[in-house]
Simulated scan of single mutants.
Amino acid sequence: MRPPSAWPAVALSLFALPISYALNSLAALEHSWAVALVGALVLLGLFAVVYLPSQSEDPLFYVFMVFSFTSVIDTIIALEEEGYIGGFMEFYMNEGEPYLRTAYGIMICYWDGVVHYGLYLMMITAISQRKSYRNFGLYWIGSLTMSLVVFLLGNIVGKYGSEIRPAFLLNFPYLLIPIWAARRIFSQPKTWPLLMEDKVFEEQNKSLLRRPLDLGLVGFLLLAAAFTLFRGLVVLDCSADTCFNYVYQQEPYLRDPVAYPKVQMLVFLFYLLPYFCLCFYGLFRPGCTWMPDWALVFAGAVAQAQFSHVGSSLHHHTPYPYRTPEDAWWPVMISNVAYAMGPHLLAYRCLRSPAFFCPAASRDEDKKKQ
């Protein structure tokens, strides 16, 4: 069977321009239910157009094709809200999801239109060439899940909670499909590099002091865990002077009533902090085979979160009192960029030199041979 080509994804995604322009001119789309209905019909139509002529054996091929189209839609939304283009998605912003006009909404649209779009094309290319896309997929799962969780919860509990329209329901397939996709991607065979058993045994018996990169990562995890806990306490209205000074002098965006930054810090507190603690164990205890996969997932999640959080705190759509002060710009930037880079260094370490995380059985077999 001839493998599907990746080029149709590019062609399909570019149809987002004429389709959105045509829909924007329909007077019937001045009603919220009409916008939601048309959005659902467009998605169903896309799946039909992609599924019928394709010959892919991987069902995720069709998902990535359709999601590449919506990524271009998000790019159009971001560019239109920035004033670079006009006449494409105004109907959707008025009667669909007005909260996308916030700084956070624009940032996640940029991320989806650039990073996710690139990942879709790379994964479609890998499928067309019958290659593994497991690592790309894990990074995408983390990024997309983080984006949706913060976005959906922020819409409900923030100041836009009273402006939820029927089109809000269109987001739920994007939350459910990644769960199904994650099960398929995690179930794909994990490929460990060919390593000699004595090499695995040697790496897994090195103390932390003999692994300088791991020692540095432990230092990062300590600082990142403390920073995560601190910002979680800040958004929970801790009365300590340090928290009060930080939220007013360093990151006033954490007080923005849109609630996205508060939800983001709480997600970090309840999910990322436990992950950091597990990584301590993984860097001390050899044979933690889960480390490479979850390092990729959380690297994608933190990258999306930090891009959207930092970008929103600087964006002109954020009211001036909640933007990062000029005198605190460099400390806030350095701390947030370092916070985003750490999980990527951990993922790089896990993938580049995975002997320490190989199954412990290899180590036991080597011991028996000796």
Rank of each mutant, 00 (worst) to 15 (best):
Ala360Pro: 03
Leu121Met: 11
Trp330Lys: 07
Val337Asn: 13
Met146Ser: 12
Leu213Gly: 08
Leu60His: 06
Leu283Asn: 13
Leu213Asp: 03
Phe69Arg: 00
Leu37Gly: 07
Ile164Asp: 02
Ala225Cys: 11
Leu208Asp: 01
Tyr322Asp: 00
Pro292Leu: 05
Pro257Gln: 03
Ile156Pro: 00
Val234Asn: 10
Ile19His: 06
Ser313Gly: 10
Pro331Asp: 10
Phe276Ala: 15
Lys368Tyr: 10
Gly118Leu: 14
Leu269Lys: 00
Arg323Glu: 00
Leu52Cys: 05
Gln304Phe: 14
Met196Val: 06
Asn24Ile: 11
Ser5Lys: 15
Ser20Ile: 04
Arg211Ile: 07
Ala34Pro: 02
Cys109Arg: 11
Met123Thr: 14
Phe220Gln: 06
Gly287Tyr: 01
Thr75Ile: 14
Pro53Glu: 01
Leu278Thr: 14
Leu254Trp: 03
Phe186Asn: 10
Gly118Met: 13
Ser56Val: 04
His344Lys: 15
Arg211Lys: 07
Tyr174Glu: 06
Ala182Met: 14
Leu26Arg: 14
Val115Tyr: 02
Pro321Val: 06
Val297Asp: 02
Trp192Glu: 05
Phe69Ala: 02
Ser362Lys: 07
Trp140Arg: 13
Val218Glu: 00
His315Gln: 05
Met291Thr: 15
Met65Cys: 02
Tyr133Ile: 15
Trp111Asp: 12
Gly154Cys: 04
Val157Thr: 03
Tyr160Thr: 01
Gly87Pro: 00
Pro189Cys: 12
Tyr271Cys: 14
Asp237Ala: 08
Asp74Met: 06
Asp366Arg: 15
Pro321Thr: 11
Phe91Arg: 08
Pro325Gly: 00
Phe220Glu: 01
Phe201Asn: 02
Glu82Lys: 07
Ser5Asn: 15
Leu41Trp: 12
Glu30Gly: 05
Phe220Tyr: 15
Gly96Asp: 04
Ala103His: 04
Arg285Ile: 08
Pro252Phe: 02
Tyr104Gln: 08
Gly83Met: 04
Cys288Lys: 08
Tyr348Leu: 14
Ala36Val: 03
Arg285Thr: 10
Leu169Tyr: 03
Tyr248Trp: 09
Glu197Lys: 12
Leu43Asp: 06
Pro53His: 12
Phe230Leu: 08
Pro286Glu: 00
Glu97Trp: 01
Pro257Leu: 04
Ala34Gly: 10
Trp329Ile: 09
Thr75Arg: 08
Tyr246Glu: 01
Met291Cys: 15
Gly39Asp: 02
Glu82Asp: 06
Met1Asn: 04
Tyr99Val: 04
Gln264Met: 09
Gly300Ala: 15
Ala182Asp: 00
Ser54Thr: 12
Glu82His: 05
Pro292Ala: 10
Leu153Thr: 12
Gly219Cys: 14
Asp74Gly: 09
Gly113Met: 08
Tyr320Arg: 08
Trp140Tyr: 14
Ala347Gly: 12
Leu175Ser: 06
Tyr246Cys: 01
Leu208Val: 11
Lys199Phe: 08
Cys288Asn: 07
Ile127Thr: 13
Ile156Met: 03
Arg352Asp: 04
Gly96Gln: 03
Leu217Val: 05
Met89Ala: 10
Leu215Asp: 09
Glu82Trp: 11
Leu121His: 14
Gly158Gln: 06
Phe220His: 13
Pro18Asn: 10
Glu365Arg: 11
Arg211Phe: 08
Tyr253Lys: 01
Thr242Ala: 13
